[in-house]
Design a protein around this nucleic acid. Structure first.
Lengths: 344, 344
DNA sequence: CCTTGGCACTCCGCTGCCGAGACTGCTAAG
DNA sequence: CTTAGCAGTCTCGGCAGCGGAGTGCCAAGG
């Protein structure tokens, strides 16, 4: 079914109106609030056809219409007017991020809270996998003959620290020499490219054992190979304002999913390299408990590469245009801020 | 009003029963389920007196009784039987903590999640102020003539890292010499004791400027002087199971408070040096929105000092004895685990 | 062939009412 | 002091009735 111009306009209006009021939209309400140029009877015919086409559903016979997933999808893809981020919102984001600390984790946390507040929904942000960063410096610190700490500085900050225990004694001098050898060898390479061979070459050259090598590798790749990518979230209480959550079971399963993190991460992972804001609506999420929700996701960059994503989770009936603009704008500002704190 | 033996027993039974059922407790239910040796009419008289004494309240005339804050308080302080932590719960806690990483933050997070799961309520844990730790090592890493990173290792782990920018050029050698001088001077002292003078002495001796001194001080005290103590929380969705939260407004304000953190921290801060589990019930919390809640708090130690607290937030009608045992046991195991990871 | 006014019909949600059930407080007797 | 009995109070679930909102359909008109 293709939509002629009038059908498209009516569908857009129904979605818009339902997003605003959370009430099923009736034919009369449409003719009164919007200048359609036809009577409510005509609109009723159109609504019936849109329902037959799968874009609308009726909660019960004598109620108005509500968009279906397909209806929202059509709205998002073709019907709605993309919005620009309001300039004062943009300013607020910029200000907030400028004042944040230089520490990556805190910047991410701050951005999450900000996004939760501005979107009035639940925001979550994935923390970057740091293997996209560039190696800058490693320092092995001697604490005792058998223990030490390895610190790795990358372009993105101090990205790993790992305590190690050794099977054989090492001297402070051993660790200093190894640090120097590694720094000379690994400088300015991407963490991803650094393999076991690079480290093995340095340790063997200095006559150090396997255990030291393992410790260094753990420091270099420890955090990056974590199988559970972490994310920060904020604004769960905003969801309670939505009339659709007067059903507590829904809310409960959502909170559980948010706390678990993994499901949430899997849902958005494929949007990491998207160009435009990615929107998943209701059933498209593929999770039974989330059929009443939608998620907007935008990646953020560090240098040329996307290293994480910023998402907004809300009821299916969310103001898509506004939230997409908000997410994009925030991601952009975050990306800029990250390049500020880059260690050159 | 003092309670004779029978009144005490009846009050204890009412509280116990209400905690179990969440329904107002009637005189007949008491005589049937518990062997009181008197009739329901007698119990009714006693209940009326307990109500006059302020220990019980009646939701409406023809309903059973419900404990008041004073009733719960009496129950917790004098009437209930303290419980021991079930041995398999203890084992689970031990296992979970043993498998956790050595990293302080992750240990705390893991403990929080565990406590949320076992308590079936909302758990939150304050992250330690690290100025209670002992200085072990500082390392200043040269990145460029004007920038560097300072890393501080304390008895509790790598506790601070701070990027700094300098007004004047410094050489890698300057920073190494300063690191050595500081390590010689500060070794094994408590972070709290280390003052500006100690650092100033070292920088002046080596002919380094004010800006380097500031950077070192920031690294030493940066995280510790943070005015916003952070905490981790887990298990918010458990609260939804409680029948008292079918009122969404309550839930909403609780979630807001949890997300804010500060109020929550202030509520438990005074229990930092408590010997036994501290319990605050309803109005005792002093926060309007929390009159239906109680909090159990237990400090955990690192070495000899309490450095943080572990709390359980739930409905006033929580199983106090069980949760107090759980919180104590977890705090104890956490304290042991922390001494395991201590850097000697 | 599309549009439109009119109308019958459906369904929801609110209100008021009733009766059953749950407890209490009181009284009078043991 | 305890207890049986009883009257009184309040809640809650179910049910009927009703108004309102909205639709679908039909027949007439452009």
């Amino acid at each position: 079914m293709t939509l002629d111009k009038r059908k498209a306009y009516i569908l857009a209006t129904v979605v818009y109106e339902y997003i605003a009021t959370a009430e099923p939209v009736a034919s009369q309400a449409l003719t009164q609030k919007y200048n359609l140029g036809v009577s409510s009877a005509t609109v009723r015919n159109e609504l019936a056809e849109l329902e037959a086409g799968g874009y609308l559903v009726q909660p019960h016979t004598s109620a108005g219409r509500v968009p279906s997933d397909a209806g929202y999808r059509m709205y998002v893809d073709q019907l709605m007017h993309p919005e620009q981020l309001a300039t004062d919102d943009r300013k607020r984001i910029r200000d907030e991020l400028r004042d944040a600390s230089r520490e990556l984790d805190e910047i991410i946390e701050g951005t999450t809270r900000l996004l939760g507040r501005l979107s009035k929904n639940l925001a979550f942000v994935t923390k970057p996998a740091n293997d996209s960063a560039t190696f800058r410096h490693i320092q092995l610190i001697w604490l005792s003959a058998r223990t030490g700490v390895a610190i790795v500085v990358t372009s993105i900050g101090v990205s790993a620290q790992s305590m190690f225990e050794l099977a054989n004694d090492a001297t402070p001098d051993d660790l200093t020499r190894l640090s120097n050898a590694l720094n000379a060898r690994l400088g300015n390479r991407s963490l991803r490219e650094i393999g076991e061979r690079d480290v093995a070459a340095a340790t063997q050259e200095l006559g150090l054992g396997e255990d030291v090598k393992k410790a260094v590798l753990a420091a270099l790749h420890g955090a990056s190979s974590a199988d559970a990518p972490t994310l920060s979230s904020s604004g769960a209480q905003n969801l309670l304002d939505q009339p659709e959550f007067h059903d507590l079971r829904k809310l409960r399963s959502i909170l559980r999913i948010v706390e678990e993190q993994k499901t949430l991460y899997d849902l958005v992972a494929d949007s990491m390299n998207a160009e435009a804001p990615a929107v998943k609506i209701g059933h498209e999420l593929g999770v039974e408990e989330m059929t009443d929700f939608s998620i907007v996701t935008v990646p953020y960059r560090f240098g040329a590469h996307a290293i994480g994503m910023l998402s907004i989770l809300g009821p299916r009936r969310m103001p898509y245009a506004r939230l997409m603009a908000l997410a994009s704008g925030t991601a952009e500002t975050l990306s800029e801020r990250l390049s500020d704190v880059e260690i050159k």
